[in-house]
Computed example of a mutant assay.
Amino acid sequence: MLEFITSDALPVRHGFFTRKGGASSGIFAGLNCGTGSSDLAEIVAINRARVAEAMGVPPDQMMTVHQVHSPDVLTVTAAQPIRPRADAMVTATPGVALAVLTADCQPVLFADAAAGVVGAAHAGWRGAKDGVLEATLDAMEALGAKRANIAAVIGPCISQAAYEVGPEFYETFTDDDPETRRFFAGGNGDRMLFDLPAYGLWRLRQAGVGHAEWTRHCTYRDPERFYSYRRTTHAGEVDYGRLISVIRL
């Protein structure tokens, strides 16, 4: 059985899918939806088809992009077979599902149900810092959404307790904005712990979104339910699965 997490803040069809219920095996066991992984392409296609069915759309109506940790947003009027380079999508077209892939980064789903506009963003630390969340809000407004009516929900991602970084990472944030010191806690030696979802929520709220929340699921700490790039790296595994998060009108 597929398992997905939802939020009452998003009154449209959506889901942050866990790894449960997929056809992949081995290190990818479960619902690996990453075409960029070394998993069998036909198995990944089966997994994606199961997700599309759960969202009530044909597989070719579930749109993904070639994610590159950018602030770039694609406005989707119809699903297309090619995957443009971008890290977020918005649409006002009913029946088109927007999907992003993650394995520790933040999947963020957006909706202004009154205006009939939804969005999805892949927001790792770089994309969030470079403005992908704000760019998604801008693109939704261009389709008629009102920022104060938009709800944004951050799905399963790496939590602060599992996200150890070095001094260069810390300085990348604090040199630009000293206020970001609040998102770092002390670690071992010169290491620090970065609170990615708190940073994402702060950026969303600073941008004036109507509602922002995190589902409070950590990808690193729950291997039964979630894939994690960092956990895979620590375990010395050769590759990792990708989680999928989807929203549609």
Rank of each mutant, 00 (worst) to 15 (best):
F4T: 00
S7E: 04
V12G: 01
V12P: 02
R13I: 11
H14D: 06
G15R: 03
F16E: 00
R19V: 08
I27R: 08
N32Y: 02
G34R: 14
G36M: 10
G36E: 03
R48V: 12
R50A: 04
M55W: 04
G56K: 02
V65I: 14
Q67Y: 09
V68G: 05
H69V: 13
T75I: 12
T75V: 12
V76H: 00
A79Q: 09
Q80T: 14
R85L: 13
D87V: 06
M89V: 11
T91S: 06
T93M: 02
P94M: 07
A99F: 06
D104F: 12
F110M: 10
A113N: 09
V117F: 02
G119Q: 07
G119S: 07
K129S: 11
D130E: 11
V132T: 05
L133V: 05
T136G: 02
M140K: 10
A145L: 02
A151V: 10
I154V: 12
P156T: 01
C157M: 09
I158E: 00
Y163L: 05
Y163P: 03
Y163R: 08
F169N: 05
F169K: 06
E171N: 14
E171P: 09
E171Y: 12
T172I: 09
D175W: 14
G186C: 14
G189V: 05
L193S: 03
A198V: 09
G200D: 00
W202H: 15
W202L: 14
R203N: 06
R203M: 05
A207V: 08
A207F: 07
G208T: 11
A212L: 12
H217E: 01
C218V: 11
T219L: 03
F226K: 03
Y229F: 13
H234C: 13
H234S: 09
A235T: 12
R242C: 11
I244T: 10
